[in-house]
C-alpha cells in the first residue's frame, strides 16, 4: 500500500472516529456519570476523565430507588407506551390499508386531511384537547395518555406507502380463493408486511416513551405518571444531584435499546419480493 493511500485512509479514519465520538459521548457521559459519586461528576466534567468509569459505584442507582418509586413510573411508562404502540399498530395499519387499497367515497379528501395532520404539532392542539378530556372526566388516568395517541398520521402514512408497494395480485388471489377483505388483510397482508410493522412499532415507541408535556398537563399524582415526569422532579427539586439523574437516564434508555434490538432484524430487512416472479 502506498504512503499516500495510508495517509488518506488514516485521515478518514481519524475524522470518522472523531464524529463517532461526538455522537456517542453524551451517552457515554451518562453511563460513566451514573457510576460516580456526585461530587466527582462536576469536578471531572471539565476533563477527559468524565468519560472514564474510574470507580464503579452503584450508589446513584440505589439513591434513585430511594428517592422515587421507580418501579411504579417504569410500569406506567411501559403500560402507556405499550398500549399506544399495540393499539396504534392495529388502528393505523387498518387505516393505511383502507387508504391504499379499498375503494370508498371520500377516500382522497380524507387522506388529504390525514396528511395535513402530519404537520400539526401536539402543542397546537394541547389546550382544546385538554378541555375535551376534562369534559370526559379522563384526567389522571391511563386512558387520557393512551387514547389520543393511538391514531397517528405519520404511522398511517408509513403503512399506506408500504401497502401500495405490495403486489396487488396477492390480494386478488386471496379474494378469488374465497377470503373477505378482513381475512385477506390478516392472513395475507400482515404476514408480508413485517418491515413496516417493525418500523412503526419502533418509531411510535420512541416518540411515546419521551412524552412530557401532555402527561404533565393531565396528570397530578405519581399513580399514572410516566418516567419523563419523574426524572423532571430530579431537576426541579433540590438537591440537584447529577449522579442520580444520570443513573435514572440510563435506566430510562434501556427499554428503548431492548425494543430496537428486538425489532431491528425486521426494521432493516427490505421489502418482500419472494413468491412473486421468477
Amino acid at each position: 500500500m502506498s504512503w499516500r493511500r495510508l495517509v488518506s485512509m488514516g485521515l478518514s479514519y481519524a475524522a470518522l472516529l472523531l464524529l463517532a465520538f461526538l455522537f456517542v459521548s453524551p451517552i457515554l457521559l451518562m453511563l460513566t456519570g451514573s457510576m460516580k459519586a456526585d461530587a466527582r461528576v462536576l469536578v471531572e466534567a471539565g476533563s477527559f476523565r468524565a468519560f472514564l468509569p474510574l470507580d464503579v459505584d452503584l450508589q446513584n442507582y440505589r439513591d434513585v430507588f430511594a428517592r422515587v418509586d421507580f418501579g411504579r413510573y417504569l410500569f406506567n411508562s411501559l403500560y402507556i407506551t405499550g398500549m399506544v404502540v399495540l393499539a396504534g399498530l392495529v388502528v393505523n395499519s387498518l387505516a393505511g390499508y383502507a387508504f391504499a387499497r379499498l375503494a370508498w367515497r371520500g377516500r382522497r379528501v380524507l387522506f388529504g386531511l390525514v396528511l395535513a395532520i402530519l404537520i400539526l404539532p401536539l402543542e397546537a392542539i394541547a389546550v382544546p384537547l385538554f378541555y375535551q378530556v376534562t369534559l370526559f372526566g379522563w384526567r389522571d388516568t391511563y386512558l387520557v395518555q393512551i387514547v389520543p395517541f393511538i391514531a397517528n398520521a405519520f404511522s398511517i402514512y408509513l403503512f399506506y406507502t408500504f401497502f401500495l408497494g405490495l403486489p396487488r395480485e396477492l390480494e386478488e388471489a386471496a379474494r378469488l380463493d374465497g377470503a373477505g377483505v378482513l381475512r385477506t388483510f390478516i392472513a395475507i397482508i400482515v404476514p408480508n408486511s413485517k418491515p413496516v410493522f417493525a418500523t412503526v412499532a419502533i418509531l411510535s415507541f420512541l416518540s411515546q416513551w419521551g412524552v412530557f408535556l401532555w402527561p404533565l398537563m393531565v396528570t397530578s399524582g405519581e399513580a399514572v405518571r410516566p418516567l419523563p415526569l419523574a426524572i423532571a422532579t430530579f431537576y426541579t427539586l433540590p438537591p440537584l444531584q447529577w449522579g442520580d439523574i444520570f443513573a435514572f437516564g440510563v435506566m430510562m434508555v434501556l427499554p428503548i435499546l431492548l425494543v430496537f434490538l428486538f425489532f431491528q432484524r425486521w426494521f432493516i430487512r427490505g421489502v418482500v419480493a419472494t413468491g412473486i416472479k421468477g
Binding site: 395480485e169 388471489a173 378469488l176 380463493d177 408480508n192 418482500v272 413468491g275 412473486i276 416472479k277
Partner: peptide, 20 residues
C-alpha cells in the same frame, strides 16, 4: 356477485403465491 361467491379460480402471470 363478489369474487368469493363466483367460485372461479385464476392463475396470475406472476403466480401470486403467498410468500409466507
Amino acid at each position: 356477485l363478489t369474487p368469493q361467491q363466483r367460485n372461479i379460480a385464476m392463475v396470475f402471470q406472476n403466480y401470486a403465491l403467498y410468500p409466507h
